[in-house]
Nucleic acid binder design. Sequence first.
DNA 1: GCAAAAGTGTTGCCCATACACCCATGC
DNA 2: GCATGGGTGTATGGGCAACACTTTTGC
Lengths: 230, 230
Amino acid sequence: MAYDPGAFEPFAVTVDLVVLTIRDDDLCVLTVERGEEPYAGRRALPGGFVLPHEDLETAALRELAEETGLTAADVHLEQLRTYGAPARDPRMRVVSVAHLALAPDLPTPRAGTDAVAASWVPVSSVESLAFDHDEVLRDGLERARAKLEYSPLATAFCPPEFTIGELRRVYEVVWGVTLDPRNFHRKATATPGFLAATGERTNRQGGRPAELFRRGATTALLPPLTRPAP
Amino acid sequence: MAYDPGAFEPFAVTVDLVVLTIRDDDLCVLTVERGEEPYAGRRALPGGFVLPHEDLETAALRELAEETGLTAADVHLEQLRTYGAPARDPRMRVVSVAHLALAPDLPTPRAGTDAVAASWVPVSSVESLAFDHDEVLRDGLERARAKLEYSPLATAFCPPEFTIGELRRVYEVVWGVTLDPRNFHRKATATPGFLAATGERTNRQGGRPAELFRRGATTALLPPLTRPAP
DNA sequence: GCAAAAGTGTTGCCCATACACCCATGC
DNA sequence: GCATGGGTGTATGGGCAACACTTTTGC
């Protein structure tokens, strides 16, 4: 019965990454081009095998660093879901623990070592990824959209200091909606722990200089920022 | 790099189950007693190895049937999270895909084949489960509590036909709160797709006979049933 | 009648929306 | 001045908590 040693089948375990960022007011996902069969030439989500003594999250961070140069301090990373259909990889039995990462737009394109063909693709124009990665991406997007409502996750798309307008654009791009700037401002600043004022101002957006904020200490938004119906 | 065949370490992959039910107005979790080392004599969540050609969800359903006799039609089952710390099992590298199952109270105790020491334990009096199962249980409870708000999941704790009062008691027990019966009734019946009237009545609760409902067709509660603050 | 549970009506408050309006900058 | 984005004030409407009240059973 359970955990009878010796009676188990070996599996390969990988981590796959749904890395999202916002570039030019577009929600983008990191993809790599596959060089070998199966799915040679097709785009896929970045990922790789978990090493023998490595935690799952550590493996995800290592892959993320290899592909983007980003480290744990730069991104939000969380486990998404595990995919283990028997035939999802035609070569062998592979169970993949997918992770979701949210990153601010990178000024430097990429610092990766072996990220030969990695590139950001707007999620609206992604199609036919390798393996079951279309489904993984769908699940990741759904998770990200839902979590913006009740967690301060949107700040993960922003640089360390940001304006309310920049934060609002994150919500608008991820949700694909337009929000009232006045009401959004009131709501965001009124939610306790969401934002921490810096006292600084910037006029990088043009118009009247805006206050700069850092992310606050809370991990949950009470009350939540609700998504408009349709 | 990613998916280089031959360069992977074999892992054991298991499924673990957080099976919740409500017995005597108490939220209970299914546990088994371990017969062998490690953690011999300690209680643990039920689980076991994924078979070579088996889907993860299929494996979870098989384990669930072995322990409880419950089948897919009887329960709500969803993937919870995957646990893969290198030393979580001292014998070998094991990655466990935990699942959350919600079941109505079972009139028949258990129909399992090898469920020697399986038993329901109130979650308030669970302590020191084997492996990392305390953490798994905590995550499962948190998921269940959160999902009652925005999904019709509470009906999974009820028999096929139930009254509003029975449904309300599910919320009260899982959340550990008391709810206003009048407002709950209004809210539950007003949420589109949540409940389907049967036209039948029952007086099994005593007092004025209550209408019987079945679960409705929706998978999301709009608007959600919000949990009271503290 | 009395207790218990189901269900309805009503009221007042809070909060979200919509939008008028003012502020501070670049050009 | 004018355009652009930042930020505040305020009215209106819908939802929800609180609770009075009625209904229908068992004893």
